[in-house]
Design a protein around this nucleic acid. Sequence first.
RNA 1: GUGGCCAUGGUGUAAUGGUUAACACAGAGGAUUGUGGUUCCUCUGAUACGGGUUCGAUUCCCGUUGGCCACCCCA
Length: 451
Amino acid sequence: MSITKKPVAKKPGEATSKKTAQPLSSVRGMRDILPADQHYWRKAFEAAQNICDSYRFDRIETPILEETPLFVRGVGKQTDIVEKEMYSFETSGGDKVTMRPENTAAICRSYIQHGMLNLPQPVKLWYWGSMFRHERPQSGRYREFWQFGCEMLGDDDAVVDAQLALLAWKYMQSLGLDTVVHINSIGTPESRLNYRNALVAYFRPKRNRMSEDDKKRLLKNPLRLLDSKDPVIMEMKMEAPQIVDWLDESSKNHFMHVLEYLDEVGVPYQLDPFLVRGLDYYTRTVFELYEATDDQNQHQNALGGGGRYDGLIEILGGKETPAAGFSIGIDRVVSLLKNRETTPPPAEEIDVFVAQLGESGRKRALALFEELRTSGFKVAESFSKSSIKTQMDNANRMGAKWTIIIGQKEVLDGTVIIRDMDAGTQEIVDAQKMAQELKKKMIQKSAESIS
RNA sequence: GUGGCCAUGGUGUAAUGGUUAACACAGAGGAUUGUGGUUCCUCUGAUACGGGUUCGAUUCCCGUUGGCCACCCCA
């Protein structure tokens, strides 16, 4: 809603600049999703909705704000997310809250809070929403970013893990994106602890060749050494112990089953013995989705990831409940969709444009527009313009097939002009018969275009 | 948090240590005040911010902010 000011000629010597307010821009790392991009976002959303409907997942929405301890306990105190990336603050009422950096912990909270353990298990939920992490923005990384995700709570069967990976992969397929699932198992917290010790034992003697950063990681979170891109570490890694060899029997079995199920449904996967994820809650299966490409450099940005988190619900104060899930980075998906499509999306088709002349014409036009809209036409207008030229120009640019013209004369006669925009011909019809006449013309036109 | 590159209208690009910062697209208006596509005309609109060097800075230097990219980490 804006009031257009008539341009006023400036007189010489007149003060030209009142101080204009500093223009504001969006907060760092957060961006507008503009109309021009909505096409892709809608595609991504509808694909998610469709696939979740067909796999019988129910949508859930949780608040953006949660109590800070939810993430501290859920995601893990030692993780980078909690240590330095959360948007946390205290409300005027003294509550410590955080803008969700991810959604799994919140969904578990909701599961507990609403007694979903009384529903048939597993409970299958999906979500779509934005998450917040205070990181330095870069390619494919924003401080507000959108995730689509699925969670299956209340079942520990390997088939659940496989179904989730399948669903995530199918989602990408449905958008025309070829992906590969990188998968690994990190076992139980105990087996992970043993593995961790083995890793430390392996890397410690080589410490003097490591960067400061990596030395720190060796102390704090040795598993993270595994996805270091430092060539020195990459080389050391070749000989490093692999977690598969430290898994307990039951985790090993579980993992084997997951892989068998994936084979069965033809999901392309790649075993990645060094895949560990950055959130503390994962147990057993972990996986990430990458674009299937030969380009090695592509591997910095996962399109999505997930896994099993059997301990999380209990950590959050619920009964011991196994669960698994994944999330997909929609910003990254959309960026792939965009740069894959070479031709811009077609503009929405317009059937009829309503043009008006004079005040009485404009009044009638408003009503005609409503009539056409409610009888199912795709209608457009530029009621705020009074020049017929400008209106015709707009009608043309919007690609309207017909234009209804209503001026003073037509109002008096009870008629409207229907102009065929392709042919440039027009005829006067009874205003009562406008809709019906247009329908006829539409049918004619579509018949012509078929033959 | 660290590093590299960068910053001119809404967008994409020019130019310059010295009058009024140019062009294209987009936007607004117009070329017989009742008719679109082509064409033509007019208008709107920019040197990110703050210091410094200089007679003079949009141009050179420093700082800040922001952007892009990489690291870290993740989606």
